[in-house]
Design a protein around this nucleic acid. Sequence first.
DNA 1: TGCTAAGTGGAGACCCCCATCCGCTTGGCT
DNA 2: AGCCAAGCGGATGGGGGTCTCCACTTAGCA
Lengths: 197, 197
Amino acid sequence: MRADARENRARVLTVARELFAERGLDVPMAAIARRAGVGVATLYRRFPTKESLVVEAFTEQFAHCQAVIDDAMQDPDAWRGFCTVIEQVCLLQVRDRGFTAAFVASFPELHSEVRDRTWTSFSALVQRAKDSGQLRADFSPHDLMLVLLANNGLSGAPVEAAVAASRRLVAYLLESFRTGTDALPPPVPLSLDLVLN
Amino acid sequence: MRADARENRARVLTVARELFAERGLDVPMAAIARRAGVGVATLYRRFPTKESLVVEAFTEQFAHCQAVIDDAMQDPDAWRGFCTVIEQVCLLQVRDRGFTAAFVASFPELHSEVRDRTWTSFSALVQRAKDSGQLRADFSPHDLMLVLLANNGLSGAPVEAAVAASRRLVAYLLESFRTGTDALPPPVPLSLDLVLN
DNA sequence: TGCTAAGTGGAGACCCCCATCCGCTTGGCT
DNA sequence: AGCCAAGCGGATGGGGGTCTCCACTTAGCA
């Protein structure tokens, strides 16, 4: 690959990440091309389809999620680790408008092994928090999807407002997740496949 | 207005409500026209723009919300009334895919007096629940928007899954809203204008 | 029953998006 | 320096959306 081409490719990726974060996944390819200072064709030569660009643009974010979970497992306080994961992921989600869409878009085929690994890590984290007696026993790992989807509902707002709203929502939810309350949420812990179409 | 015209108009509205509920606001006007058994022109003669059709189609839903709140104010148990409102509105929202979108779409100008009335009613309900000692004192009426937006995040799923998920989310949230917990959510109660763009 | 204004529906103008094609430009090896 | 494949950008095709125009139909009064 020629030097200029490599540079263009990198710039496209950067710009794509910016625009996806600002405006969501439905920003036109032409807009990305324009802001990156290249033609549309260049974009399509490097990324044969829009989806491939999306996937490529978000892999680092996904990796970051995994890192957050791994770090949390190292936290000596299981509950604090659990909270940190929820908070960090929700923050990520609400700061980057395209994040969730990219997540569900790349869900079916791509990253399937990454997804499985993240899932088992998170389940372990949940189990550890339950064992420590601070996370309510009827919390389901599938509730993560509940939190993610709910939190994603806030993404429409301008970033700062969304961040503040998300913080408040997460605080409310974490309070419910902690042991010490008596009432139970409905028993059905939905599978995430059901929830995501 | 001629008799057949009146009938067509009514059928269009019914069909529009069905389709908006099933598929969200972005169903094409042509689809509505087809299912209503009329041409596209007929549709546009009665409703000069798509937005006007949306507004018209959802006014009854908004009225229903108001009724739910009014009913709740009659409930001798202030907390139960509060819960009912949250539950019912969230159910409505998750059963009708277009509901929230229609709500924010018609937000700026239209229905402004309706909106104000609903808002003051809800605030009164909140105050009553606080006075009864069952709703935490730092709950803000603006938190309603938080709940609505969060709940709306679940609307993407197929209806049954969404309903179940919504029930669980609402149960979690209501548990947090009740008095008796010590931790506080972040102090900033966002204004709803900030959250909705 | 006949007239006419109100009502109708389909074709198509216009716009935006994804993706491709093709003639021109340029990096970088020789 | 010269060559040429790799790279480039704008024009273009194709699909799908909102909304308009216009020749035809029909309700409903006299």
